[in-house]
Simulated assay, not measured.
Amino acid sequence: MSPIEFKGLVARVTGAIASRPLDANLQAWLNTEYAAGSEGYTGLADACRAGVEEGWLADREAGGIRYGRIFKALPDTDGFSVDVVHMNNIAGPHHVHPNGEIDLIVPLADGATFDGHAAGWCVYGPGSAHRPTVAGGSAIVLYLLPEGAIEFKKHAA
């Protein structure tokens, strides 16, 4: 797997979702069309694991979280930026999604969850905010941001 091949896998998904609103319907569609265990999900999950292991994904580290933006919002990815994080029983920094966020959740440990979601997809709508949290072990999360928009803000605990 290479970054170019990885971009091709991601572009299959972004091409299918580019015109859809980021909402519960999109989350349901992704969890049907790219359900955990399906060929599409498995291809992306395997690529994320390989990229993290090889060091070209999540190539930075801060506060116990490995992270990195592999692609800015590009025409090749239908205007979505592509980031990958590797987290282990930790909460990340609070942030806002001005245009929404789409997350592919790849548990590395049995029972690991991201914001309470097991293997699969989670969609946050425009204007949503959270403190991303992995519990129950280690997980990789690929996230797609329309126009690459994300705002980190201090948030009272």
Rank of each mutant, 00 (worst) to 15 (best):
I4G: 14
T14Y: 15
A24Y: 01
R60I: 00
V10C: 10
W56N: 10
I140K: 02
P126D: 09
G148E: 13
V85I: 14
D103M: 03
S81C: 04
G40H: 11
N88C: 10
G111C: 02
K72L: 12
T42D: 06
F6Y: 15
E147S: 14
S2L: 15
L30P: 07
E54A: 15
K154W: 10
I65Y: 02
E151H: 09
T113K: 09
P132C: 06
A24T: 07
A35M: 06
D78F: 12
G79H: 07
G120P: 05
R131C: 08
Y41W: 11
H94I: 00
H97T: 01
E39I: 12
P75D: 15
Y143W: 11
V84A: 12
S19F: 09
C48P: 01
G40P: 12
G137A: 02
L74W: 08
T14K: 13
R20T: 08
I105G: 01
E147I: 02
C122G: 11
V85C: 11
N25T: 13
S2G: 15
A118N: 04
S2A: 14
Y34H: 12
A28R: 09
G111D: 04
T113L: 08
K72T: 12
L9N: 14
L142G: 02
D78L: 05
Y143I: 01
P146F: 03
D46E: 15
A109P: 03
I90M: 01
R20P: 00
L22H: 08
R12C: 11
F114L: 03
P98W: 09
I90H: 01
T133Y: 01
E39C: 04
A62P: 00
F152A: 09
D110S: 09
L44N: 07
G15P: 12
G37K: 04
W121Y: 05
K7S: 15
L74H: 05
Y34K: 04
G37P: 10
K72Q: 13
L108R: 05
R131S: 14
I90E: 00
L30E: 01
V10P: 02
P93L: 10
L104V: 06
V141M: 03
S128I: 00
G125W: 03
E39R: 12
F80R: 06
A24C: 00
G125L: 06
T77K: 11
